[in-house]
């Protein structure tokens, strides 16, 4: 189990975290290749069902990452995303999903180092948690 490679689905906003990820890449920062990124215009458009679907399809963790409060390109999309994450963190653990498989961070456009560090940390954490066994099991 220790040597499995987790799959982390990351919903990142175009203006901040995606740009930070880009910066991490162009700065040649070393980071694990476990994250599959979905670039959204804003975290405020991450519908809870995207996250639920990712987990039911066997993603080992989901990361939602956007601009710091006050920096949102659309003024408050990130704050809406935070309430939705709060909602999911209340609902999903009732069904045995480990809360640590749901992560939300604020990573600004200039914070490439933060992004690489978040990916490293999260990958290690999710590795320790073990795989989401829904990947191979039939889901009703």
């Amino acid at each position: 189990m220790g040597d499995y490679e987790p799959t982390i689905i990351a919903f990142v906003c175009n203006w901040c975290t995606y740009t930070a990820a880009d910066l991490a890449g162009t700065s040649r920062l070393v980071q694990p290749a476990n994250v599959r990124m979905v670039r959204m215009m804003c975290t405020g458009m991450v519908d809870p069902k995207y996250i639920i679907k990712a987990l039911l399809e066997g993603a080992d963790a989901v990361l939602v990452s956007g601009c710091h409060p006050g920096d949102c390109h659309y003024i408050n999309g990130n704050l809406k995303a935070r309430r939705r994450m709060k909602l999911l963190k209340e609902i999903l653990p009732k069904f045995g999903f480990d809360e640590r498989r749901l992560k939300m961070t604020w990573i600004g456009a200039s914070e490439g180092i933060d992004f690489a560090e978040t990916v490293r940390q999260m990958t290690a954490e999710v590795k320790a948690l073990g795989p989401n066994d829904l990947r191979t099991r039939m889901v009703l």
Binding site: K49, I52, K53, L56, L87, L88, I91, L92, F95, V139
Partner: peptide, 8 residues
């Protein structure tokens, strides 16, 4: 998926 989304 339907029931979890409905709950959300």
């Amino acid at each position: 998926f339907f029931h979890l989304t409905r709950l959300a």
